[in-house]
């Protein structure tokens, strides 16, 4: 057993469907001398205490086994620990794995063994870290940057604050997670008139996206708005956002889509 590695399994892996692949995974890791202590997330169990316990015992690599939701359960405190994070996706959704170019399933062990470590920026929404993006859907909120200028959607729309990127309908939207900045994209609502419908049918959709790069900004609104940051929902009237450069050390695949 390698004391430098600790594996955090999600709760759903106890299901019978995943028994075979989990067994094969442990066998492969053992053959590569990467097997370590295993901890399981549970409903009334603190993920933070579980991980901190492994770190106190000498683990310097925490490998998350599960899916993007598993990663989200631990991402809010992992960057503050002196560790390298790894990810073995077993089930869907696995968009983050695709952005990091980590294969789904047993092949992810090769990525863990190759140990290509990147120092990625993290976004911060309020006091919570996010890795991929924070989305404000159907909002009239404004973006205030450095108290020097304000961007507002005239007729409402969607605001996306990207750090690593996102996958929407199978398309990658990659943002640079190593530039110390966040990419803010504002997409106004499409007009529901005859001409816009014709243009959409012809496949000539107008690209109407506002893009700016900031290190910190604030999303403000007179009405309460809801934000989705890495599948975690928060609501409020204002959200300070900032980029934290090089906060997360994570193992990535060879052909990573980071920029």
């Amino acid at each position: 057993m390698n004391p430098a590695y600790a594996y955090i399994y999600d709760d759903f892996l106890t299901d019978r469907r995943y028994q075979d692949i989990v067994a094969a995974l442990e066998t492969r890791l053992s053959s590569m001398s990467l097997d370590g202590k295993i901890g399981r997330l549970a409903l009334f169990r603190s993920a933070k205490e579980l991980v901190e316990g492994f770190v106190n015992q000498g683990a310097t690599n925490i490998i998350i086994v599960g899916n993007d939701d598993t990663l989200n359960k631990v991402m809010w405190f992992l960057p503050d620990l002196p560790i390298v994070v790894g990810y073995i996706p077993i089930a869907e959704p696995s968009d983050v794995a695709a952005l990091l170019n980590v294969p789904v399933g047993l092949d992810a062990c090769e990525a863990i063994g190759a140990r290509l470590i990147e120092s990625l920026d993290l976004g911060k929404l309020g006091d919570r870290y996010f890795l991929t993006q924070a989305v404000f859907e159907n909002t009239t909120a404004k973006v205030r940057v450095n108290n020097s200028y304000t961007l507002s959607l005239i007729g409402g729309g969607t605001i996306r604050v990207k750090n690593l990127g996102s996958i929407t309908r199978g398309r990658y939207t990659v943002a640079d997670a190593r530039d110390g900045r966040l990419e803010i994209t504002m997409i106004p609502h499409e007009p529901n008139n005859f001409s816009s419908k014709i243009w959409n049918r012809l496949g000539r959709k107008k690209h109407n996206r506002t893009c700016i790069q900031v290190s910190e900004a604030e999303i403000i609104s007179e009405q309460p708005i809801e934000a989705q940051a890495d599948r975690f929902a928060v609501s409020g009237f204002s959200f300070p956002i900032s980029a934290v450069p090089g906060k997360l050390k994570i193992i990535t695949g060879r052909m990573r889509r980071l920029s």
């Binding site: 005239i154 106004p188 996206r209 700016i212 790069q213």
Partner: peptide, 14 residues
């Protein structure tokens, strides 16, 4: 990288 202020968005300030 380029900054784009698209149609439907208003920028106020410096």
């Amino acid at each position: 990288p380029a900054t784009i202020i698209a149609n439907g968005v208003r920028l106020e300030g410096e």
